[in-house]
């Protein structure tokens, strides 16, 4: 029994097919709302955590403990004027924030959320190749970054974008290699290793224990994808103002801001799904979703701590690191996993 069936049963008076189509739509909308709420919560957690770690109080004026602060900020961003720089590439300039947000939200649809009590399985979309789809969808976000940088007619933005591209290329190859290792390991146990749900089911031993090298590569890659402090050369506020988003303001800037925090959450969710067993844990059938949230939250806190305590890596050193360390490590990991699969350990 999953959430889709539940909604379809409630809507069954409409007939078989309409109820399923409507149920699917409703579920998608629920996930989009979930993603938005989660990102807003993520912003709140970040601000509160950052404040407490830095011996401040953080937002505490709007609502109890400042919970509504994110809403207030969102409202402020919506009503602010969106400044259009002269000499911009109009279509690309307007398309970029939408692409960022689209790629982020679509990523949330294919995550296996696991079962939760009465609701049943919360996963929205099942696909035999969802592992590939999810990475393809996330790969839309760099396109948004590139478009925003080259379209806004600003030198800082161009330099930021160039750095961003260089960074993306240098970590995405090792990241996909580590995913390949995952697929290999999963294929030994389940028949659908390209399905992200199959990857979760295959983890009677979490893959983080089975292939620590791949885990390391993937964590670094997800941090670089979200581009927070050690890897924020693209934005690097003390060098390039804010990199590719320099000229943006108002709601368009808000999309970039949500994109940053959303990617941290999505990345943590993917790490916990792919490497830490996702929704697996005691009483999986009742609280699988809760397990996923707990694992994600711990990873989010670790990410924020890294963000707050690390200085920025210089771009050439990161490229060096990506090609000279991450890539060989990913290959070694692949070979080790190959032997594990051959030996029948996995």
């Amino acid at each position: 029994m999953n959430l889709l069936l539940r909604i379809a049963t409630i809507l069954s008076f409409l007939g078989h097919y309409p109820s399923y189509i409507l149920g699917y739509l409703i579920e998608t909308i629920i996930v989009i709302i979930f993603a938005t709420v989660v990102i807003a919560g993520m912003v709140y957690i970040f601000r509160k955590y950052m404040a407490r770690v830095q011996m401040r109080i953080g937002p505490n004026r709007v609502g109890k403990f400042g919970i509504m602060q994110v809403m207030a900020d969102g409202l402020k961003l919506i009503q602010k004027e969106s400044i259009m720089p002269k000499g911009r590439d109009d279509l690309a300039y307007k398309l970029a924030p939408i692409l960022i947000f689209f790629g982020l939200i679509m990523g949330f649809i294919f995550i296996p959320y696991g079962p939760l009590a009465w609701f049943g399985d919360l996963t929205v979309s099942h696909s035999d190749v969802s592992l590939i789809i999810i990475f393809a969808l996330i790969a839309i976000m760099p396109i948004g970054e590139i478009l925003s940088g080259i379209s806004s007619n600003n030198k800082y933005a161009v330099i930021g974008t160039l750095r961003g591209i260089a960074k993306d290329i240098s970590f995405e190859v090792p990241m996909m290699l580590s995913i390949l290792a995952i697929v290999m390991a999963a294929s030994a146990k389940v028949s659908n290793p390209l399905d992200i749900n199959g990857v979760v089911v295959a983890q009677s031993i979490p893959f983080a224990i089975l292939e620590p090298l791949g885990f390391f590569v993937f964590i670094i890659s997800m941090a670089a994808r979200a581009s927070y402090s050690p890897f924020d050369m693209g934005e690097s506020d003390s060098e390039l103002v804010t990199g590719n988003t320099t000229e943006y303001s108002g709601l368009r800037f808000g999309f970039f801001y949500l994109g940053l925090f959303g990617t941290i959450f999505l990345g943590s969710m993917m790490i916990s799904t792919i490497y830490l067993g996702g929704y697996l844990g005691p009483f999986t059938n009742y609280m699988g979703f809760i397990w996923l949230l707990i694992k994600t939250l711990i990873l989010v806190i670790i990410s924020l701590t890294i963000w707050l305590s690390m200085p920025r890596v210089r771009i050439d050193k990161f490229i060096n690191f990506g090609w000279k360390y991450l890539l060989p490590i990913a290959f070694v990991n692949l070979v080790i996993v190959g032997f594990l699969v051959l030996g029948g350990i996995a």
């Binding site: 955590y49 404040a51 770690v53 011996m55 401040r56 109080i57 701590t305 305590s309």
Partner: peptide, 14 residues
Amino acid sequence: MFTVFKHLFGKPVT
């Protein structure tokens, strides 16, 4: 990182 995390339990100075 641990030093930074430790301050979570300290008292704010604001």
